[in-house]
């Protein structure tokens, strides 16, 4: 059991961060507005969680302009994808072992 818990990543220990990563691993890139709509959170809340993931280098931030509007796109880095995969595997292990 302890072994499994080792892979539970503290950075993902929050619903919103988990949500951000879920969206980013299945899409090439997602912009801020889409993430906000998808997760149903406020700007500030989303931004702070994105910052945390960025700090861990799990996500990549690309700022650009579409016309005059600033547009920020996020994508998962390979480190992020790997960590997320391990985290999900750990979740599955825990669920499985508790069902035995």
């Amino acid at each position: 059991m302890k072994d499994i818990l080792l892979h539970i990543n503290k950075t993902f220990d929050h619903r919103i961060r988990l949500g951000i990563m879920s969206a980013l691993v299945v899409n090439d890139a997602v912009d801020f507005k889409s993430l906000k709509e998808l997760l149903g959170v406020t700007d500030g809340n989303l931004a702070s969680h994105l910052k945390a993931l960025e700090k861990e280098e799990f996500i990549l931030v690309q700022k650009q302009f579409i016309g005059r509007k600033p547009n920020t796109k996020y994508s998962a880095t390979s480190t992020g994808k790997e960590a997320f995969k391990k985290h999900i595997e750990a979740l599955e292990q825990i669920i499985k072992s508790s069902q035995l």
Partner: peptide, 17 residues
């Protein structure tokens, strides 16, 4: 809670793609 996480992850992956 972990089960809820997994369900949520699945739903977000579906809704975002």
């Amino acid at each position: 809670n972990y089960l809820k996480d997994i369900t949520e992850i699945k739903s977000i992956m579906n809704r975002s793609t």
